[in-house]
Design a protein around this nucleic acid. Structure first.
Length: 272
DNA sequence: AACGAGACCTGGCAGC
DNA sequence: TGCTGCCAGGTCTCGT
């Protein structure tokens, strides 16, 4: 379930590994979205994990000679094990640390990625083209309004474009648009400056709320049994087709945009 | 430059 | 019970 808050939560849960040297790298199934670099097995051991940061939905693990980039794709999970355990079917990648802890990547659909970014990850082709982080000040209504000038696509598609802003996935795109009272099919370049201000503010608020919820599940997520134990967040629209809008009781509708399910309230989010 | 469709994979579920 | 088809939280690549 990796949207941005889950990635951030996952990254924070890995903090106990910082300062630890790598003892061993295990690659079981190298064909994720891109091949896992085979030489990690030789180059990473003895290197110390110096820091953990996040850019978009990539977790950046800084080692002595560069950064390891981890992406969870659609179905990826990272578990932090206190000690080695038998690997399950979709456990593709392990980092074993000197104190016995194991970082284990599980990804049934294999849309995730493990990549080496070198010493300057912001130069990496996948990261250099990304838009601003949604929770930073560079992202605001003014930025959205200016970016939307040349965009005629539905606003929901636009806010999910990582070149424009990162970290807005399918769930939180619908949720943010509901909270901003904007119909998801509105052409981006038809939004007023005021609507862009609302939308930017609600994207920030939606992600901040989800992050607070994700944070509370951290203990469960890294529990001894390795089960996620997420508590289901309450959504206004997502996956609620036909159910009553929590504001006005109108049935929530579902439309397909950019090949993705999109949910909205036709009354709270009137067509432009 | 921007848009839409296709691609990558597996698992779960509804319907027959 | 077993098969088929559809759907799923991401996002890069390609053709227009």
């Amino acid at each position: 379930m990796p949207e941005l808050p889950e990635v951030e939560t996952t990254m924070r849960g890995l903090a106990p590994l910082v300062g630890q040297p790598v003892a061993k790298v295990v690659i079981r199934h190298p064909t994720l979205r891109w091949p896992i670099p085979a030489d990690l097995v030789h180059t990473l051991p003895q290197q110390t994990l110096k820091s953990l940061t996040r850019r978009a939905k990539y977790i950046l693990a800084q080692f002595d000679t560069g950064y390891l980039m981890l992406h969870l794709g659609m179905s990826g999970r990272i578990c932090l094990l206190a000690q080695d355990e038998p690997a399950a079917k979709h456990d593709h990648f392990d980092l074993h640390f000197a104190d016995g802890q194991v970082l284990r990547l599980r990804d049934p659909r294999r849309f995730g990625a493990v990549l080496w970014a070198g010493a300057e990850p912001e130069q990496h082709a996948l990261l250099s083209v990304l838009g601003p982080e949604p929770l930073e000040s560079a992202f605001d209504g003014d930025w959205l309004y200016r970016q939307f000038r040349t965009r005629s696509a539905p606003v929901k598609n636009a806010i999910m474009d990582s070149h424009l802003v990162v970290g807005v996935g399918n769930i939180y795109a619908s949720e943010s648009l509901f909270r901003a009272r904007i119909h998801p099919q509105t052409p981006a370049n038809q939004l007023s400056r005021q609507a862009c201000d609302r939308l930017a503010a609600e994207i920030k608020a939606t992600l901040t709320d989800a992050l607070a919820a994700g944070g509370s599940s951290l203990r469960d997520f890294f529990g001894a049994d390795g089960n996620p134990g997420y508590f289901q967040q309450e959504y206004f629209t997502y996956a609620r087709t036909g159910e009553a809008c929590k504001i006005c009781s109108t049935p929530i509708q579902n439309v397909r945009l950019g090949q993705r399910s999109t949910f909205f309230c036709p009354r709270c989010q009137p067509k432009p």
